[in-house]
Write a protein that binds this DNA or RNA. Structure first.
Length: 276
DNA sequence: AAGGTAACCTGACTGC
DNA sequence: TGCAGTCAGGTTACCT
């Protein structure tokens, strides 16, 4: 489900319930997530005050003096703030209980999400260590994400430009929705080989990625089916999508029917007139 | 080294 | 109604 804007919206939603509070208890009901929830994670986290809730790529990092817990939402995960009286729903796999009485509750039908322990140095965790720069200014290594950088990484790459920008080792946070949307904004055909996009158009693509992600964050992300941010509200960016899930519908710019195709097992949408 | 594919899992929807 | 098939916002593991 969640790409960078949805994870960031979740972070902003749950941070007020966690930062400055102490985690009194961690309740894990189902350890069988993408990776099993490590034995002992509850004991490490319980009693810890939360310093910050950060985001790196699509990971939420809950930082405490005793170490950092990493949460990934996978395809169908979400987190929300509830109180102790709230009835459990199907797929509510773990709770972070705080000393205010608020509970941050994780729900994930497909269990592609994860809850892991990253210790004192999350930046060196194997799942984080090799990630590319953040796309949005101010975030980790974001000053590296430039036209020069994306151009250089694309040299001699035979994969499509869409697969290239969805590669988290190149740049993080761009998933299937926003890859299609950013390419539309840049006027680039998604099937073009990464190494065969002109330097000038690569520059437009960097801007397209940054603006589409920022625009989506501003309205709480994209709710397609069941996603909602930490406050339980859906995201409103769906109304602003130009191509994603609009196959057969007219391009908002030129009226041409939007085309649906597949890259690397994922649906891809584009306007064959506006994108070349 | 880079690229393609299968795999993890549940639920919603479509068509017979 | 039921059943089979398809698809879904992510990412790693494994094979060429």
């Amino acid at each position: 489900m969640p790409e960078l804007p949805e994870v960031e919206t979740t972070r902003r939603g749950i941070a007020p319930a966690l930062e400055g509070r102490t985690i009194t208890e961690v309740v894990v009901r189902d350890r069988r997530l993408r990776w099993p929830v490590p034995r002992g994670l509850e004991a490490r986290l319980a009693g810890q005050p939360v310093l910050r809730v950060r985001r790196r790529a699509k990971y939420l990092l809950v930082e405490t003096p005793g170490g950092t817990a990493m949460v990934h939402l996978g395809m169908s995960g979400s987190m929300r703030i509830v109180n102790a009286a709230e009835a459990l729903r199907k797929h509510d796999h773990f709770d972070l209980v705080t000393d205010s009485g608020d509970i941050v509750r994780f729900n994930d039908p497909r269990r592609f999400g994860s809850l892991l322990w990253a210790g004192a140095t999350p930046a060196t965790h194997p799942l984080i260590r090799d990630l590319g720069p953040e796309p949005l200014p101010g975030d980790f290594d974001a000053d590296e994400f430039t036209g020069d950088y994306l151009w250089t990484t694309a040299r001699k790459r035979k994969v499509t430009i869409k697969q290239h920008i969805m590669n988290a080792n190149i740049v993080v946070g761009v998933g299937n929705i926003y890859a299609s949307e950013a390419l539309f904004r840049a006027g680039i055909h998604p099937s073009r080989q990464a190494g065969r996009v002109s330097r000038a158009r690569i520059e437009k693509l960097v801007a397209g990625i940054q603006t589409v992600l920022a625009d989506a964050i501003r309205v709480g992300g994209t709710t397609l089916r069941d996603y909602s941010g930490g406050d339980g509200k859906p995201g409103y960016f769906r109304q602003k999508l130009n191509v994603y899930e609009r196959g057969g519908k007219p391009c908002r710019v030129c009226g041409t029917e939007i085309t649906r195709t597949v890259h690397g097992q994922r649906a891809t949408y584009y306007c064959k007139t506006c994108q070349t």
